[in-house]
Each structure stands twice: as C-alpha cells, then as structure tokens.
Design a binder for these strands. Structure first.
Length: 280
DNA sequence: GTTTAACCCTGCACGC
DNA sequence: TGCGTGCAGGGTTAAA
C-alpha cells in the first residue's frame, strides 16, 4: 500500500471511525499476530492502551497511518504490502489472517488483516512519537504545502542517485513505492537510471508535476487494486487506478502514448517498468 | 554517500 | 494430484 491507498483509507476512517469509542480490543492468538504488534512484548500491552479510548483524529505521514486517541496515545499503523483495515460486525466471520479486532461501543468493529505480515501496528504516547525512528526521519510529503518545486529541486541537486531508488527512498520523499514511482517517471518522461543531479530545471519541474499529478489522480480513483494484492478500501471496495496505469505491470504491451513495447529492469530485486521511447 | 543483496511472510503460478 | 521453486512487495540492515 502506497500513499494514495493510505490516504483513501485515512479519509474513510475520518468519516467512519473517528468519534467512535473502543469497547474491546483483541490481538488474535496466532504467532503472526504477535509479529504484527512486534514492538509490544505482550498482547495486553497493546490492547489495554486501546480499550476505553475514543478515536479523535486520523492522520497520515507518508505510508504511516496515525489514529489519535483521547487518552493522548497514538495508534500507529503501517500496512506493509498486504495489510488492510476492514470494517465488520460480530455477525461477519473474521477473514483469514485477521490479527487485530477492535470493537466499538457504538457497534461494529475494525479488523486489521495482513497475510504477509510486513505491516505493523503499535500504540505509543504522543510524546514518544518523535522517538519512533521511521517517523522521525520521514521526508517531505507530496500532499503537503511545503512540497514546492524549488524545494524539490534543491533536494534533488543535493543527492547523486538514480531516480527510481531515490523516489522510493522514504527519507527523500515519502509515500511512493514501486508502482507509483514507475508511473511518476513515465509521466515525467524520465528514465529510472537518470542521475538526480543531472536534471535540467525543466526536467526537475516535470518530475515535480508528475509526482503531484500521479498521486492526486490515484487518490481520485481511490487507489490501485492489483489482482494479487487485492487492496480494498475500509468498506471492502476495490480502487480503480489499475485501469489508468501507463507502465506498471504492462511488460511487452504497447505504450499507451507511442505503442513501443513496455520494458522491465530489475532494480534492487524489484521490477521496474518503463517505455524506452517516451522516457529518456 | 550510494548501491546491492538478504531477510521477513504467504499465496499463487508454474513446471515436472 | 502434488510437490518444489520462484516471484511479488515495503522497509530495514549489513556489507560492498
């Protein structure tokens, strides 16, 4: 799950979970459920900090979701690649790989489901939030006002790195993963292996626009639901941005702009998709 | 500072 | 049918 999916989830939670009070919290008995709450030594260390609290706000930092509680604590969630929240009721059976179930006083529950358990979930005090390393080092967010093109250009010039890994580096810019970094590079007409400090100011501007537009479009389409990953929103509905993808997952298929077959390269063990004609 | 590879995990597609 | 293998992916970490 990348920035657009987390942002769609944040908005759903804002509408449907903020304001609710937690009656009961449960971490399921499986070993992988413990893996999900790995920062806590015991299940009770996690559940006791949720029970009796009210969710006051849903915030997003990069790919992290922060649910603020009226106790002053913050429930932090990172979805990894297969994690998701699903709303349910007592009558619905729990889907496989459900690790956390939070039941609300007003009825209904919220489940954290994660087959591959690359995601994680923990509760911390607002004061200690700054000590969470991954959050403390998180970079500029494409949806923040501070994300301007002069600021972006300066950041780019300060680094000497290939564009693809740089866009995925959460300490450089937060929220982009493998799918959206490929889409951004295509939209900017730039190759994955261009060096960040070699870009003309016009190219930097194109890349900046591409980041903003790609992320905003993907949110408008409520995220990307691939066949194998099956991301769905809080209410179980898939996104529609997969139909808009220009390069990701389209190996060998004609480029939507020039009809040249889309190519792939392995970059740090991940597939990158690009059009050899449109990107340079 | 940057890059590479390995690791964590499950489900699925594939070949035999 | 059923097994083994490889791949997918976010992020961290250690090593190059």
């Amino acid at each position: 799950m990348e920035l657009p999916e987390v942002e769609v989830m944040r908005r759903d939670l804002e509408k449907d979970v903020v304001g609710r009070k937690v009656k009961e919290a449960e971490v399921r008995p499986s070993r992988n459920s413990m893996r999900v709450i790995r920062r806590h030594a015991k299940r009770k260390d996690f559940t006791s900090r949720l029970e009796g609290t009210k969710v006051t706000r849903a915030e997003r930092k990069g790919k992290y979701l922060l649910l603020h509680l009226d106790s002053g604590d913050v429930w932090v969630v990172h979805f990894g690649m297969s994690g998701q929240f699903v709303r349910g009721t007592k009558r619905n059976v729990l889907p496989p790989h459900t690790h956390i179930v939070v039941t609300f006083q007003q009825g209904g529950d919220l489940r954290y489901v994660d087959p591959r358990t690359f995601g994680e979930s923990f509760v911390t005090s607002a004061d200690e939030l700054g000590k969470v390393k991954e959050l403390a080092h998180i970079a500029i967010d494409p949806l923040e006002d501070t994300f301007t093109w002069p600021a972006f250009g300066e950041l780019m010039a300060r680094r000497a790195s290939k564009l693809k890994p740089l866009l995925m580096d959460q300490t450089f810019i937060s929220g982009l993963g493998n799918i959206y970094s490929d889409e951004v590079l295509f939209a900017a007409g730039l190759r994955h292996d261009r060096m960040s400090d070699s870009l003309s100011s016009q190219e930097v501007r194109r890349l900046y626009r591409a980041v903003q537009e790609t992320v905003q479009d993907a949110i408008r389409y409520r995220g990307t639901t691939l066949e194998d990953e099956a991301y769905v929103d809080l209410f179980g509905k898939p996104g529609e941005y997969q139909n808009e993808l220009k390069v990701y997952g389209r190996k060998g298929l004609p480029c939507r702009r020039c009809r040249t077959p889309i190519e792939t390269v392995k970059i740090s063990n991940r597939n990158s998709y690009f059009c050899p004609q449109c990107q340079s």
